[in-house]
């Protein structure tokens, strides 16, 4: 039996990619609250209601993901026939937004669940498939919707209750990106670090940032160790949705391990909304990292205003059942390094 050496695996959790994996196009579709935020000019399509003339919030979310996919494909000059795999996920039970979107696209489909880390999980898997020569063009998408998430994880949308100040607001929106190993303009995926599940013992489902920060810190730490890099290597380190509270915790944990990320570190959950929009500690949800990175920072990279970005989307892997059964919330974070 022949033995194969794993040439691209670096350290414990990372994979180095060569020059072939490019993000050739991206598209974002945003909901009402997001369209009133500071990044509104950067979304391809904005809606000022949450139902989009669909019969349910779930259908509206799927509609947004479909639209993002079609816009991303159009921008890349590709049709669904050109896509080898569609990799997508969302927050809903059985990942229905992604699956029902895939039904329309009729492209070989890999459904994934990473909660709010779906974007970078999708990018990581897509990158490895392209690196290995298993595909030429891959479409990655994710979505979340405040009402469908609220309805599933917490309370009916008209229920009157007070959310704690540190709670976060699930983003309504969708993002899609085309990855290609064929020639194309755009940031290239340089390396990825797949995260481990980290459980900090947090049981409060409103304290997402605090639950996810240790997972983010763990992945970022292992990325630096595997790749033998310092935080200063990157122009920007961007977490998905730790929010104001989790962001600080992440900085503290990493500082304790000898890595100071504060000068070039930001979090999508903090950037997406204005303080007066009453979103507690910030945005959360799969679309948080998608709207902020694919909408805003992708443009900045195309203009070469940022050349090296470490994108770390973070997800909390609990369910309403585990919460009721008094389990804590394990979390995960996947990191992708982008260069242009």
């Amino acid at each position: 039996m022949q033995s194969y050496t794993i040439e691209r695996k670096i350290g414990k959790q990372s994979v180095l990619l060569d020059k072939t994996v490019t993000l050739v196009s991206s598209a974002t579709v945003a909901g009402p609250k997001e369209s009133l935020g500071p990044l509104s000019a950067f979304f391809d399509r904005s809606y000022n209601d949450t139902i989009l003339k669909e019969k349910s919030f779930e259908r509206a979310e799927c509609h947004m993901m479909e639209e993002a996919c079609h816009l991303a494909l159009a921008k890349a000059g590709l049709s669904p026939d050109d896509i080898d795999y569609f990799i997508a996920g969302d927050l809903l039970n059985q990942v229905i937004s992604a699956s029902f979107c895939a039904r329309r696209l009729a492209v070989p489909f890999l459904g994934i669940y990473g909660a709010c880390s779906t974007l970078t999980e999708g990018l990581s898997i897509g990158a490895m498939l392209l690196q290995g020569g298993f595909a030429r063009n891959i479409l990655v998408a994710t979505s979340s919707h405040n009402c469908s998430a609220e309805r599933q994880y917490r309370y009916p949308t008209e229920y009157g209750y007070q959310r704690p100040g540190y709670a976060q607001w699930t983003v309504t929106g969708a993002g899609a990106v085309v990855l290609s190993s064929e020639a194309g303009e755009g940031p290239r995926l340089e390396s990825i670090t797949i995260g481990k599940v980290v459980d900090a013992g947090i049981k409060d489902p409103f304290a997402l940032g605090v639950a996810m920060a240790p997972a983010a810190a763990d992945t970022i730490y292992n990325h630096f160790v595997d790749m033998a890099r310092e935080p200063s290597y990157y122009n920007l380190i961007l977490t998905g949705d730790l929010g104001g509270v989790g962001k600080k915790l992440n900085e503290d944990i990493l500082a304790g391990k000898g890595y100071t990320i504060t000068p070039n570190y930001s979090d999508c959950g903090v950037l997406l909304y204005y303080p007066h929009q009453q979103v507690g500690a910030g945005g959360s949800g799969c679309a948080c990292s998608a709207l902020v990175f694919l909408g805003y920072f992708y443009e900045k990279m195309l203009k070469k205003e940022l050349q090296r970005v470490l994108l770390v989307a973070t997800g909390a892997l609990h369910s309403p059942t585990t919460y009721l059964q008094r389990e804590s919330m394990p979390a995960i974070a996947h990191a992708v390094s982008l260069e242009i």
Partner: peptide, 23 residues
């Protein structure tokens, strides 16, 4: 209103009615 009123609207039977109606 409940976001501001909190228990002021949740404890009276208004809260009960809201929990049933919202579901």
């Amino acid at each position: 209103i409940a976001r501001v009123a909190g228990a002021g609207i949740a404890v009276p039977v208004t809260g009960f009615a809201n929990s049933v109606t919202s579901m």
